[in-house]
């Protein structure tokens, strides 16, 4: 499903070059649940950003369902991203001025769904996520766990085959963290491919494979479940 070859990312700031990723090659099969682990600054988030098409690599190749992603123009990439990739972030990245309902609905708006279809789909997901009674509230009125549930709901609303999760439990207490991980685990069981970045061993236990990054390079790949 996802193949990267020699992905490299160099940041330049005021003449100083920092290499965030050095030739990362990764293969992700459909239905995989992969955890990327490593110390702070090893390039985990950079890798996720490159896989999510929200950043450009300095070198390397990226194939998504066999298509050479980096040869696409910006519009094609946006199109590919909105149809195939859902995002869950550590700090939720909800839009403060939109209600829970509107936040979840947003990807469908951009996909051009009709209002009625959107309503049906949002109601379904909101129900599944146990957020029905909160849908008219604003993010600031929710707890961290609830906010992350909203973020997950938003990520899966358009039924993307791939979900990228950047430390999804990083800002949550253990109960809420587990709740979110259970949701992700179930999604994976239903066939959604998940690539997750985390520091948490317990979260990593939900995945099938762990990729260890160090100084921008993959140093180790462990299969945790078969």
């Amino acid at each position: 499903m996802v193949i990267t070859e020699g992905l490299t990312k160099v940041f330049k700031a005021e003449g100083v070059e920092t290499i965030a990723l050095r030739g990362v090659s990764l293969k992700v099969e459909r239905g995989d649940f992969i955890t990327v682990m490593g110390p702070s600054g090893c390039g985990k988030t950079t890798l996720l950003n490159l896989l999510g098409l929200i950043d450009e690599p300095s070198a390397g190749k990226y194939y998504f369902f066999g298509q050479d992603v980096y040869s696409m123009n910006e519009r094609q990439k946006t199109e590919l991203r909105k149809r195939n990739i859902g995002f869950v972030f550590q700090n939720f990245n909800l839009i403060d001025d939109l209600t829970v309902y509107e936040n979840i609905e947003l990807p469908l708006v951009y996909l051009g769904w009709k209002k009625k279809e959107r309503k049906e789909r949002v109601e379904e997901v909101v129900g599944n996520m146990k957020l029905s009674h909160k849908k008219r509230l604003f993010p600031a009125q929710l707890s961290g766990g609830q906010q992350q549930r909203v973020a997950v709901a938003r990520a899966i609303i358009a039924k993307p085959p791939l979900i990228l999760a950047d430390e999804p439990t990083g800002n949550l207490d253990s109960i809420h963290g587990e709740e979110v991980m259970n949701i992700l685990g179930n999604l994976n069981k239903e066939g959604t491919t998940i690539i997750m970045v985390t520091h948490s061993q317990s979260d990593a236990a939900f995945s099938r494979k762990i990729v260890h990054l160090f100084d921008g390079q993959i140093i180790n790949e462990n299969i945790t479940k078969v």
Binding site: G52, T78, N93, I95, D96, L106, P107, Y110
Partner: peptide
Amino acid sequence: KELGIRKILGGT
């Protein structure tokens, strides 16, 4: 940041 999120979510 909001604009970034919107772009990630597919906003053109």
